[in-house]
């Protein structure tokens, strides 16, 4: 059964076409990631699904209810953890959770017990009766998640749950989320621009770029869809743009991109491509500091699809290297 069905959603804000026909399906009980750069339309998609805003066209169902036609039924079935914390800073953690529970229609003993359970689960039991103003960023974020869970929703939306957290708080948030996903029989829709986060948490994911899903599948499927290997060359000096065009022109290289002093390329076989990459660079007098090769990571998948999307739009037609993803 599908917990979330999204079909051809379009939404325009003024001159910006935020969604250009987003579509995907999330099965009940699964953790689904929407991965994409800032401004790709991830948050807008979640806002439509959480009934905060209406799409211009298209159709979406959450827990079997239409987000436009039956918004209150959807609201009862979901928990929404917005991108920026929505906690009441002048209230305590317990007061925040209790109020949220009440407006979701939970009350009395059941609510008290649930609030205690969540405070314990999220490691906030000791800080429960302190005013939120004094919480750390990680604690505030965990309370946000608690607010989304207080009424035992069927579907939880997590919009960039770890943005702005330090690496330690992020890692502990991932642990919490993994435990929640197992313990609470939840469907989770997660948006993120951290590849690692999607890789670690999501059962399946969709890469979103410019208001559209460009590819969807399990992290493994997506990595496999990029056949071959990734070669990363660290340049001795800064001529990355030159190096990129030289390497991209080589027959063995599927695609190349550069960032700072790093030149990334995707090749069929590292052993065969590396010598020609190095000699091509040497011929033009570009020094090389280090070369590494690895199996494609989600990073490569992301760059491949979002990069190609941009290139395709910029060059009207673009290039094709023969590899494709499934689930389009």
């Amino acid at each position: 059964m599908d917990a979330i069905v999204v079909d051809e959603l379009r939404k325009r804000y003024g001159a910006v076409q935020a969604l250009q026909g987003v579509g995907f399906r999330v099965r009940a009980g699964e953790v689904f990631g929407l991965l994409g750069p800032n401004g790709a339309g991830k948050s807008t998609t979640v806002k439509v699904l959480a009934t905060l805003t209406k799409p211009d066209s298209g159709h979406a169902e959450v827990a079997g209810c239409d987000v436009v036609g039956e918004p209150n039924a959807v609201r009862r079935a979901i928990g929404y953890v917005p991108q920026s914390s929505g906690v009441d800073r002048d209230a305590t953690g317990r007061e925040n959770l209790t109020l949220q529970g009440r407006i979701q229609g939970v009350g009395g003993r059941a609510l008290e017990a649930r609030v205690d359970e969540l405070l314990e689960l999220l490691g906030l039991a000791e800080a429960a009766d302190r005013v939120v103003r004094g919480y750390s960023g990680g604690m505030k974020r965990r309370l946000d998640v608690g607010l989304g869970l207080v009424h035992r929703p069927q579907v939880l939306f997590l919009d960039e749950p770890t943005t702005g957290l330090d690496p330690e708080a992020r890692a502990s948030m991932w642990d919490e989320l993994e435990r929640l996903a197992e313990g609470e029989a939840l469907t989770i829709l997660l948006t993120t621009h951290y590849m690692e986060e999607a890789d670690q948490l999501a059962d399946r994911l969709a890469i979103v770029s410019r208001g559209r899903v460009v590819v969807a599948g399990t992290p493994e499927e997506l990595k496999r869809s990029l056949r071959g290997e990734a070669v990363e060359v660290e340049l001795a000096d800064g001529r990355a743009a030159d190096a990129e065009s030289i390497v991209a022109a080589l027959e063995e290289v599927h695609e190349a991109s550069s960032e700072g002093r790093k030149l990334r390329s995707r090749v069929a076989s590292g052993a065969r491509a590396i010598p020609s990459i190095l000699s091509a660079l040497e011929a033009k007098g570009i020094g090389v500091e280090a070369v590494t090769t690895h199996r494609p990571s989600l990073d490569d998948v992301y760059l491949h699809y979002t990069g190609r999307e941009f290139a395709a739009e910029d060059e009207a037609g673009g290039r094709d290297d023969g590899s494709g993803g499934d689930g389009r």
Partner: peptide, 13 residues
């Protein structure tokens, strides 16, 4: 400013 309202709006309040 503190995004308290959007959080409430995603509930049946």
């Amino acid at each position: 400013d503190r995004d308290v309202l959007p959080r409430f709006l995603a509930t049946p309040v």
